[in-house]
Amino acid sequence: MSLLEFTNLSVEFETLNGGFRAVDNVSLTVDPGEVVAIVGESGSGKSVSMLAVMGLLPWTAKVTADRLTFQGRDMLSMRPKEKRKIIGKDISMIFQEPTTSLNPCFTVGYQIIETLKKHTDLSRAERKNRAIELLRLVGIPAPERRVTAFPHQLSGGMNQRVMIAMAIACDPKLLIADEPTTALDVTIQAQILELLIKIKEENDMGLVLITHDMGVVAETADRVIVQYAGQQVEQQDVKGLFRDPHHPYTAALLAALPERATGDQLPSIPGVVPGQFDRPAGCLFSPRCSFVFDRCHKEQPTQAGKELGCALCHTPLVAGKPQNEAA
């Protein structure tokens, strides 16, 4: 049985200028022990879709889904009280910027213990020991001392480890990591990723990795979902995606990596991700796509089959060439 499963999840924000669809019919399944990466530029709705699963969006957000289950239990019809027993315990999340996500008024030990207090029936002393043990587990030196430190006394890498310690405090079955290494140096990034993979393997945990770094994806993920402007544009296992991307956006994103550059000029994607007011009709990627033709401007594309990476495109690419052009 898959751990987390949702189909056709949409999130709409009520704004002064009408509704804005930040996430549009996204589906995902995560199995135990699997690493699924969600990639996309900022504004592609990758964080919002996961926050919706966690129930952390403000009241202005309208979340709809055909189906949303965790370990077979329906989370849509679940009462908030029951949901709170799962969130933070079985599903937990590492947030993007550790320095702004941790409360500056409390010690890091207090913030870890808070989770344990809510979800476990450990005694006060046991909780403190567990907090120290968690800090040691994530590789913080002298954890007995650090447990009474405030976030500002620790470096960015340390704070991120504290976030991870908080997230894994109750042995979650599913961990959602939202850009866990974006603010960190490469050497620390390597340590954190290694740590996440180790925890995943030890606990047979499902891991959803939200990132925009293709290098991180290539090194850690099993399966990749590419999101663009709130839509899932491609879904493949990691090797297939890097070998033969089927959606023009994925192909362009990979080509734009400096390490893949061959010529003098980097092949960049012109323009920016469309916002609320400049959504094109038809395919959302059409204004930036290099394979665009008439139909793309008029009709919304449908999802291609699994063999084409579920590409949301009229002419999915195979080996860099668009298919069924005539159609």
Partner: peptide, 16 residues
């Protein structure tokens, strides 16, 4: 330590 966008490349990593 710099991640490389190639899932098939095998390399030795020195983790500091």
């Amino acid at each position: 330590a710099t991640p490389v966008a190639d899932p098939e490349g095998k390399r030795e990593r020195i983790v500091l």
